[in-house]
Simulated assay, not measured.
Amino acid sequence: MDFANAFSSDNLLFILDGFYMTLKVAFISIVLSFILGSVVGAVRYMKLPVLSPALGLIVEVLRNLPLLLIIFFARFALPDIGIQLGPMNATIVALTLFEGAMISEIVRSGLNSIDKGQIEAARSSGLGYLQTLWHIVLPQGLRRMVPPLVSQFISLLKDTSLAVVISLPELMNQSKIVSAQNQNYVIPVLLLAAVLYFAVNYALSLVARRLEARIV
């Protein structure tokens, strides 16, 4: 193991550039997948004719496909129908679709967990369906969604490492390149990558605990 040379200024900057790319892709994908998952989950909860079953089918298909396959599809199959995506955009699209499907189930389950008696009481008091959803169901459902949502966001951040297969210059790709320079660099570089992943994911879990405590 050669920590000194493995963490030369050039190598360290190279790896940190990859870490920045990981955070950038993860942040964009988290925002987009949360929006997509929330909308899809809410629509499925409302059981709209045709639309809800159609979205349910799409969600089930996406949830039961390997994320790696979706990444390959976004990067190499979409160009055949005229949609050209670079490694970063292909990764974001794949993560948004896959994680959005997962999040939609979390949202739908959270909404379904609310006691039906509260909904009936709200409706009988004169609140409309959307008002009941916004003022009664969502606030309570959110409390139960926070832990699984943050767990899903943590999984999303870790899943960015799969983009190494399409040469996205994220943390694992840059770490692989540096460690390939010298066999003695492998352990130091992988340890650094592990520390960086752990630091961000642990911070997310702490934020989730604080947020959950404030909501409750």
Score class of each variant (00 low, 15 high):
Leu130Cys: 15
Leu130Tyr: 14
Leu130Phe: 15
Gln131Ser: 15
Thr132Cys: 06
Thr132Gln: 00
Leu133Ser: 01
Trp134Cys: 12
Ile136Asp: 01
Ile136Ala: 04
Leu138Trp: 14
Leu138Val: 15
Gln140Met: 05
Gln140Ala: 09
Arg143Asp: 09
Arg143Glu: 12
Arg143Ile: 12
Arg143Ala: 09
Arg144Ala: 14
Met145Ile: 03
Pro147Ile: 06
Leu149Trp: 09
Val150Ser: 06
Ile154Phe: 04
Leu156Gly: 06
Leu156Glu: 02
Leu156Met: 06
Leu157Met: 12
Leu157Cys: 04
Leu157Arg: 00
Leu157Val: 12
Asp159Thr: 09
Asp159Arg: 05
Asp159Asn: 13
Thr160Asn: 04
Thr160Arg: 02
Thr160Cys: 07
Ser161Val: 04
Leu162Ile: 07
Ala163Arg: 00
Ala163Glu: 03
Val164Lys: 02
Val164Gln: 04
Ile166Leu: 01
Ser167Asn: 13
Ser167Arg: 13
Ser167Asp: 12
Leu168Met: 11
Pro169Ile: 13
Pro169Ser: 14
Glu170Asp: 09
Leu171Val: 09
Leu171Tyr: 06
Met172Cys: 03
Asn173Glu: 13
Gln174Phe: 10
Gln174Val: 13
Ser175Gly: 14
Lys176Ser: 10
Lys176Cys: 07
Lys176Met: 12
Lys176Asp: 10
Ile177Ser: 05
Ile177Thr: 10
Ile177Met: 11
Ser179Tyr: 05
Ser179Trp: 02
Gln181Trp: 08
Asn182Met: 13
Asn182Ile: 11
Gln183Asp: 12
Tyr185Gln: 01
Pro188Phe: 01
Val189Trp: 01
Ala193Asn: 11
Ala193Asp: 05
Ala194Lys: 00
Ala194Arg: 03
Leu196Lys: 06
Leu196Tyr: 08
Leu196Ala: 13
Tyr197Thr: 08
Phe198Ile: 04
Phe198His: 01
Phe198Trp: 13
Asn201Gln: 11
Tyr202Gly: 00
Leu204Arg: 02
Leu206Val: 10
Val207Met: 00
Val207Gly: 02
Val207His: 01
Ala208Ser: 11
